[in-house]
Simulated scan of single mutants.
Amino acid sequence: MTRFDITPLARAVLAVKDLIRRAACEVHGAHAVEVPVDGLRALTRTELDDPLAGIRAAVLARYAASAEIRAYAEQARGVGRAWDEIAKALGLDQTQFDDPRAELAFRLVAENRPLPFRESFERLDAWWRCGSCGQRIRDHDPFEANPADNEIGHAATCRRHAAEVAASRLWEEAR
């Protein structure tokens, strides 16, 4: 790798930024203009003639990204991934927050809240399709130990749910 190569992550960030700029132009009527960098004519950067169009496009991208996070989190739950695993994928580090990161991930997905969270007394749910029984599941939260108390909608013959409930009961008995 030479010093001019960029990482795949940096390349992806640039692609997302380009999509936002294109949306600002196509949807909100902005125009891309080349502006000299530090007064040099030979070196330019692309900017929008209307930065508010850029804000509108970035907000649109934020809403789309938030919807995708929720959709993928629901898919992850459906194939048996734990909220803690989802928290890791979201980049939540336990040392950053007082609450367990599984709870933070649930709140981020179900409540669609940015970090840090405001306290809320309302009960919110996440919905996902179980990869084992195929049913649409209403997930109250990861806060209770027993999945039977949190997940509503599994088929009576769902092997995954039965195994999780049995493991939860064994854990409770061992305490």
Rank of each mutant, 00 (worst) to 15 (best):
A42D: 13
H154A: 08
V33P: 06
T157H: 04
A73Y: 10
E68V: 10
Q75V: 12
H161I: 00
V165Y: 00
E68F: 12
V16A: 04
P142C: 02
H154N: 07
P36I: 04
L14W: 05
R159Y: 10
E103Y: 12
R22Q: 13
V37K: 02
S168C: 02
D50M: 05
D84G: 12
W83A: 08
A102N: 03
A53T: 05
I152C: 06
E47Q: 09
R136C: 09
C25R: 06
L108Q: 11
H161R: 00
A58R: 06
I86S: 02
Y72L: 12
D5E: 02
R160M: 06
C133A: 05
R136H: 13
L48Q: 15
S66I: 10
T2S: 14
L19A: 13
E74D: 10
V79D: 12
E47K: 12
A58E: 05
T44N: 04
T157S: 07
F121G: 15
H31F: 14
R138H: 11
P36G: 08
D38P: 12
P51W: 05
E68L: 09
Y63C: 09
K88V: 15
D50K: 07
A162Q: 01
V109A: 01
C130H: 01
F117H: 01
A89V: 01
E85K: 05
I6K: 07
R70T: 08
A58T: 06
L60P: 11
E47D: 07
E74Q: 15
H28Q: 04
V59D: 15
R41A: 09
A24S: 04
A174I: 10
D18G: 07
V37W: 02
P51C: 02
K88Y: 10
G54P: 03
I152F: 07
A10F: 08
A53K: 03
D139W: 02
A87L: 11
D141N: 15
R113S: 10
H161A: 00
D139F: 00
V27D: 11
P142M: 03
F97V: 08
C25Q: 09
A23I: 03
F117V: 05
E172G: 05
A145Q: 09
R107L: 10
Q75I: 13
A12H: 06
P116V: 01
A65K: 00
N112A: 14
F4S: 11
A162K: 01
L52M: 13
F143T: 13
I137Q: 00
P142T: 02
R62M: 12
H161F: 00
D125P: 10
F121Q: 13
G91P: 02
Y63A: 12
V109G: 01
S66N: 14
P51Y: 05
V13L: 09
A73K: 11
